[in-house]
Every structure is written in C-alpha cells, then in structure tokens.
Design a protein around this nucleic acid. Structure first.
Length: 569
RNA sequence: CGGGUUGUGGCGCAGCUUGGUAGCGCACCUGCUUUGGGAGCAGGGGGUCCCGAGUUCAAAUCUCGGCAACCCGACCA
C-alpha cells in the first residue's frame, strides 16, 4: 500500500474525552473513530489489526480442533425464554420488535444458538466437538468506556465444547487454557489466569485471563510469593483467629445512645472492637428482604452474594424497608433471633461467640452474642471482600491487588444448556445422556486495545510484528527520481516476499513522516533518502527499541524478511 | 442508576461573568521559498456556536426544558 492513497487521519492531539492510553493512541493514529458511546468505526489501519488478531485467534482455536461457524446475531425471544435467560439477562440485552410485533434480541452470547444446532448430535461417537464463531455481540452496557476496551458492539470469538462426560470437558477446557495463553503471547499481551466468578452461568471451573493495566476494570487479588490469583469476586484469604474469650456469655442488651456506626461502637465504653462486632446489612434479593451478616470490619462483595444466592436483582434496602423489616434504623440493626427474613451469614463468623451487634431498637445493642446460638442463619456463604495485606490462602504471604483488564474467559457450563435444548447423545450403552458443555470467550477489539495498553511509549503505539497493521514502512525522505525508484524497488521486492509493507510516498516533510510512522507503531522502518543512497545505504529502524542501523541497499530486503519471519514464529 | 465535568469548523481551545451576530493554534486549499525529526511567507475555504422553547430591538452569551459525550461509583455471560 502507498501511504499517499491510504486513509490514515492522524491527529497531533487526542480528543479531550479520550483518557485510556489505547483509546487516545488508536484515535490519534487514525485507527478508530467513535460513532456514539460504545460503538466505534474501524478505519483501514484499525481493521487490519482487528483482522490479524482474529486470524491468530482462529489459528489457535483451529489448532485445538475448533470448527468455525457463523451464527446469527439477531435472535428470537423464544430461544432466550427457553433457557430462562430472557429474564436473567436484564438490561444488558438489546431487545426490540420486528414488523410483526415479535420480540427479538441482539445476541449478547451464543450458548443458546449453538445448543440448538448441537441438538442434532446423536451419538457419543461424534464427540468431542469444539465449535466456534467470530461474531458481533451486542451488550447494552451501563457504561461504555475507554475506547475499544468496553463497548456495546464488538466482535468476539466464542467457542463451545461438547463432550460425553466431565473428563472430556476437562480436556476441552485445558486445551482452551493452553490455546488462550498462546494467543495472548502472540498478541504481545502479558496475561495470567485467575479464579473467577461464574456469574449467573453456574458451572464449576471458571478462569478469567487478565492483563494488568490502569485502564482495567477488574480488581485481582494476587500473591507475589506463590501463584495464587483470583478476581475479588472470588478471592479468599486466611484470617488470624480472633480471641473471643474463654467463656460463652449470655446475651445482654445494653444502651448505646448515639452510637450508629461500627467505629463509634469501638470507641464506646462497653463496646467492642470491630472484629468482635457483627455488621448487619439489609439487602433486597429479588424483592425478598434479606439480612446479610458480616464481621464488623469486613466488606461485602456483591458478586459473591449474587453467586451464593443466584439472585438476579440485588439492592440495599431503603430506609422504610429497613424500618419495616427490623423495627429500627440503620446503626442499631442486628440479626439476633430474626426468623421472618432469610439470614445469610459470612463463613468468617463461623464459631464466633461473645459478639456485639445492634438490638433492632434504636439506641441499644446486644453483647454476648453467639453466632450459632443467637442467629437463625438460613445460609452460610463466603461473602467478604478480601483486602490487600491479608494472608494468601495458599502460602500465607501478604496479598496485593492489581487493576486488570479481562481479556478472556473460559468456563465449564456443564449440562444446563444441553438439558434445556435437548442436546443428548447415546452413550456406549445406548442410553441417552446430556452433552457436557464448556464456553470460551475472547473479545477481538478488546485484545487489540489491550495490546496497545501493553505496548506503547511517548511516541505512540508499538505493535508486535504479529498484529501490526503493516510490518514495515518505507519512508521516502525525498520524492526525487532516484529515491522514488529505489523505494519502489524495495517495496515490490518486499511485497513479493509476502511482507505487509507500506510505502510512505507522501509529499510531506521528514519529521511528519517519522512522527506518523512512530505513532502508528510499525515495527520496522526503512528510511531512504539521497544522503543514504549516495553511500549505497538505507537506514533500518526498530520501533520497539527506538534504535536504527545503516544497511547496504542490497541487503535490506533479505534482512527485513528475516526479521519479520523470525518475529512471527 | 447516583455523583461530577463538558458540548463553539476535522482536532485542541478562547469568547459567555458585563447580550451587539464568532476568533486563535493545528489540519485543509493555492502560490513562492524550503526540505534527514511535526517549515516560512502570502493569499484562501470551511462553523445549524448540541437541540428546543423563552426573554430581548438583538442570544454562542441570560432563563427553562431536553439530548449527547466523558470521568468516578454502582452495574457488567
């Protein structure tokens, strides 16, 4: 391609509302333009990268036996009603009516659709299968942000595995785990897997692939001493034992005028330290008022509560609801003897005695509360959010928290969808068994942006050769006959070698061409000008290291070909 | 959904307080000079000032209503 013909609207300054580095650079480099919130047009350079990312994903999924499909992205409501997700998806799903008034939706994911196709599987002999497509997903995100990192319309590779048993699923899962790590390595993204919540999907194992970035949206708890890493939605830690005293006291109500917070009760004469208090949160889970009890100094993680209860709609109770439920205002609430509402108790409170908590009477608290004896716990669950500095559950070292971008997610679905959509096969004994499914997603555009987050400097993007829009740019310092002729010669030789090469034949100043080439992040730059030509040399520049060297004109092509081939492996 | 910020040529901004019909830098077009790190001079083109209503002789500017975008949080298979 000749730059003079290529549409690359570079900007010297990024729009003010772009903040994330990848967002700013992709716009400045003329790779993307926003249409509206969460919807981006991919311009020629952006589209080339996008296609290269997709090609790598395709290669790696094909390598583990994946078969590529293309399923529709507009779905009838009925199929989502069958799986029960018409309701559970909530506002994330774009829904509308066709001209006949039939309810339709744009796909947020494709478990249902692949399952309907898989219903034609009939024998265990046909298994295992790995099916995938690279298709546009639509998600009406509450807050699209950071350019390509969080959008409402995006291409995603989602694959689904079909196996006759759990062992087969394990194999498919592990194969994806390996494939994903290869993909991220090829995309130039430092990635690691973390234990993750399955969300509303259910299932067992769930691994999210993360890369550390300020622009990320997920907090990941990591241990530097061992390999423990988990999303805060899932992370646990080892807590030191709290000394509750030797004897078990009787429950006792005592006046606490004006004491409305955990902190105030710590200071109060006759109060208790936070770790010896019970914190009672009044939550509304799918319109059921529920008490959630945690240790006084612990924080609730909402996703853990959602996972534990399978509730779809979770919100804190309002003041009136709280008053109606417990007869007291926040600050004096407790779960002691409450049995007219579900009580979900954090497992960290197991076995605790002589605790202090609100008495459900304004201005009074209880002391001497035994969790097992005095609370009518309807469900125990791990609800508390791990804090940095707490001990790693594996090795005891202090945990840290990293801000991360989620760049891929693999998890085991089990038989939920196969049962709903009757995806059954006959096993070796001729008996019908539901197929065991797995689901594996990776966003193309998000990974493109994540690669920029990981590979940039003050001059612009630094693409890995594997996904660079062009592998080499030939920068012509002058458009005189000689330079042009030599540029054309090298350009055509590189093209013949299958190299993605861009010839910068624009009538522009050297500084402009250099700055644009660096901004766009082409890995190699061949600089040709009268000065070098006179000496029979070209300059070969390396974007990643910001270095260059002079090379004899006759050697440039073979040198670049070698470099590109070596880098692509 | 709560909190905050912002909407003025393609991008970055000024003008708004104190109404008088829009300006600067970059980018773009023409010419000349220049030419190995975002050139200089001269000339030129381009704007429903987010939308609507109101006040006024007159609104980018004041009032009211709406819309949109961004940031933080909530939310997010």
């Amino acid at each position: 391609m000749r730059w003079s013909k290529l549409f690359v609207p570079t900007l010297r300054e990024a729009p003010n509302d772009a903040v994330a580095p990848s967002h700013r650079l992709l716009i400045r480099g003329g790779f993307i333009r926003q249409l509206h919130a969460g919807h981006y047009s991919l311009l020629p350079l952006g589209w080339r990268v996008h296609q290269k990312v997709a090609a790598i994903v395709r290669e790696e999924i094909n390598a583990i036996g994946g078969q590529e499909f293309l399923l529709p992205t507009m779905h009838p409501a009925s199929i989502w009603m069958e799986s029960g997700r018409w309701d559970t998806m909530g506002d994330i799903m774009f829904r509308f009516q066709d001209r006949k008034g039939a309810e339709v939706a744009l796909g947020v994911t494709h478990e249902e659709i692949f399952a309907t196709v898989a219903a034609e599987l009939s024998s265990y002999k046909q298994l295992p299968q790995i099916w995938y497509h690279i298709q546009t997903k639509f998600r009406d995100e509450a807050r699209p942000k950071s350019g390509l990192l969080r959008v409402r319309e995006f291409a995603m590779k989602d694959s689904y595995s079909f196996d006759v048993d759990a062992a087969g699923l394990d194999a498919a899962f592990d194969a994806h785990d390996v494939a994903y790590k290869r993909i991220f390595a090829r995309l130039g993204i430092p990635a690691f897997g973390v234990e993750a919540s399955n969300g509303a999907m259910g299932g067992t194992d769930s691994i999210e692939f993360m890369t550390v970035a300020d622009a990320g949206e997920d907090d990941v708890i990591v241990c530097r001493a061992c390999d423990y890493a988990a999303n805060v939605e899932k992370a646990t830690s080892t807590l030191p034992t709290i000394d509750d005293g030797d004897s078990v006291a009787e429950i006792e109500k005592f006046p606490t005028p004006g004491v409305l917070t955990i902190a105030a009760l710590e200071e109060f004469d006759g109060g208790a330290s936070a770790e010896r208090q019970l914190k009672t949160l009044v939550m509304v889970l799918d319109e059921v008022v529920t008490l959630v009890v945690l240790r006084g100094d612990h924080q609730l993680n909402l996703q853990k509560l959602a996972d534990a209860t399978a509730a779809i709609d979770i919100r804190p109770a309002g003041p009136e609801e709280t008053q109606a439920a417990l007869g007291a205002r926040p600050g004096s609430l407790g779960a002691v003897a409450v049995d007219h509402h579900p009580v979900i108790t954090d497992i960290a409170l197991s076995g605790r005695v002589n605790m202090t908590t609100g008495a459900n009477e304004d201005g009074y608290h209880f002391r001497g509360v035994s969790v097992a004896r005095d609370l009518h716990t309807s469900q125990w669950a791990d609800l508390r959010e791990v804090q940095p500095g707490e001990a790693c559950p594996n090795c005891g070292s202090p945990l840290e928290v990293d801000r991360c971008i989620e760049i891929g997610h693999i998890f085991k679905l089990g038989t939920k969808f196969s049962e709903v959509f009757d995806v059954t096969v006959s096993d070796a004994d001729g008996k019908p068994v539901p197929v065991v499914m797995g689901s594996y997603g990776i966003g193309i555009g998000r990974n493109m942006a994540a690669s920029v987050e990981a590979n940039n400097d003050d001059k612009g993007m630094v693409w890995p050769v594997s996904i660079a829009p062009y592998e080499v740019v030939i920068t012509l310092m002058r458009l005189d006959e000689e330079t042009l002729a030599e540029g054309e010669r090298i350009y055509h030789q590189l093209l013949a070698e299958g190299i993605d090469v861009l010839l910068d034949d624009r009538d522009a100043r050297a500084g402009v061409k250099f700055a644009d080439a660096e901004l766009c992040g082409f890995p190699y730059r061949i600089t040709l000008g009268p000065r070098g030509l006179k000496a029979g040399e070209a300059e070969l520049g390396y974007r990643a290291t910001d270095t260059n060297e002079n090379i004899a004109l006759g050697d440039v092509v073979s040198r670049v070909v070698d470099l590109v081939k070596a880098a692509k492996v």
